Amino acid sequence: MSSTSDTRRDRDTEGRARNARPRDGLGRPLPYGTDGVERQPEGVVRTPEETVVEAQALLEDGKPFHAHEVFEDAWKSGPDEERTLWRGLAQLAVGLTHAARGNVTGGARLLRRGAGAVEEWGADAGRSRPYGMELAELAEWARQLATAVEDGGAAVGAREWAPRLRGGKT
């Protein structure tokens, strides 16, 4: 590899590749030098309450990609018995991201996968409202959105379709 291509690769302090390109609100890369949306810091350990509040604010702001990163932090740092819950919520957020980007197939698939995960976790754990979240309503929201995306065949508005994690529509 030439030194020229080395300088084009974004690397962290340990030499791992990191893409520092600016991103839009749906996480799509923008050209270098463009003003993008501030990224969510990675690897933040939050309480479950902080996770839900921060993810909800990002969803309402039309940034489901960023909400996905918040859920991913909870999935990776939380207790093993909650991994399926947080992973399912991350799948819902990234499913909305794909649906908003116009990726009909990927969006619908991730929304349904996430819906199944949160329902399964709720049933296995015997809890339908962890941290005040309405899992049955979230699963229903995800399935409705998956159907709407497939039927419409086009991108949806991320803000307009943002779920209420603790029940009801935004």
Results as ranks from 00 to 15, higher is better:
113 R>H: 12
141 W>T: 00
41 P>L: 05
155 A>L: 02
151 D>K: 12
88 G>R: 03
84 T>P: 01
131 Y>I: 11
74 A>I: 01
76 K>E: 14
31 P>N: 08
156 V>W: 05
73 D>T: 09
121 W>V: 05
146 A>R: 10
152 G>P: 08
84 T>G: 10
120 E>Y: 13
83 R>C: 07
124 D>P: 00
38 E>M: 09
121 W>T: 05
165 L>E: 03
143 R>D: 09
13 T>Y: 03
108 A>N: 08
103 N>G: 04
102 G>F: 02
108 A>Q: 07
114 G>K: 02
143 R>Q: 09
129 R>G: 01
169 K>F: 03
5 S>L: 13
66 H>R: 14
74 A>G: 05
151 D>T: 11
43 G>A: 11
160 E>V: 04
11 R>W: 07
110 L>Y: 14
93 A>D: 12
151 D>Q: 13
110 L>K: 15
105 T>P: 00
41 P>R: 10
67 A>P: 09
99 A>M: 02
75 W>G: 04
18 R>A: 14
8 R>M: 07
117 A>Q: 13
115 A>V: 03
39 R>Q: 13
29 P>Y: 10
39 R>E: 15
24 D>T: 04
91 Q>M: 14
58 L>W: 03
70 V>T: 09
141 W>F: 04
112 R>M: 02
58 L>N: 05
36 G>T: 10
12 D>Y: 08
82 E>K: 08
1 M>G: 15
119 E>G: 04
18 R>C: 14
35 D>Q: 12
153 G>Y: 05
169 K>V: 09
11 R>M: 10
62 G>D: 13
54 E>C: 01
9 R>E: 11
166 R>C: 09
36 G>S: 12
8 R>V: 03
136 A>V: 12
158 A>T: 04
76 K>Y: 12
32 Y>K: 09
166 R>H: 02
67 A>S: 13
69 E>I: 04
117 A>T: 05
16 R>V: 07
158 A>Y: 04
61 D>V: 00
54 E>K: 05
148 A>I: 00
5 S>Q: 12
13 T>H: 10
115 A>Y: 04
48 P>D: 15
65 F>H: 13
164 R>N: 10
83 R>P: 00
24 D>V: 04
111 L>Y: 07
86 W>Q: 06
135 L>Y: 01
167 G>K: 08
106 G>P: 08
157 G>C: 03
170 T>R: 12
107 G>K: 01
72 E>S: 13
18 R>I: 15
25 G>P: 01
67 A>N: 09
3 S>V: 13
145 L>R: 05
132 G>I: 10
51 T>K: 09
77 S>V: 02
84 T>S: 14
55 A>G: 08
104 V>M: 02
162 A>K: 00
99 A>Y: 00
133 M>H: 04
43 G>D: 15
131 Y>G: 12
21 R>K: 12
87 R>T: 02
138 L>Q: 06
49 E>M: 07
124 D>I: 00
151 D>S: 12
156 V>E: 08
72 E>Q: 15
130 P>R: 06
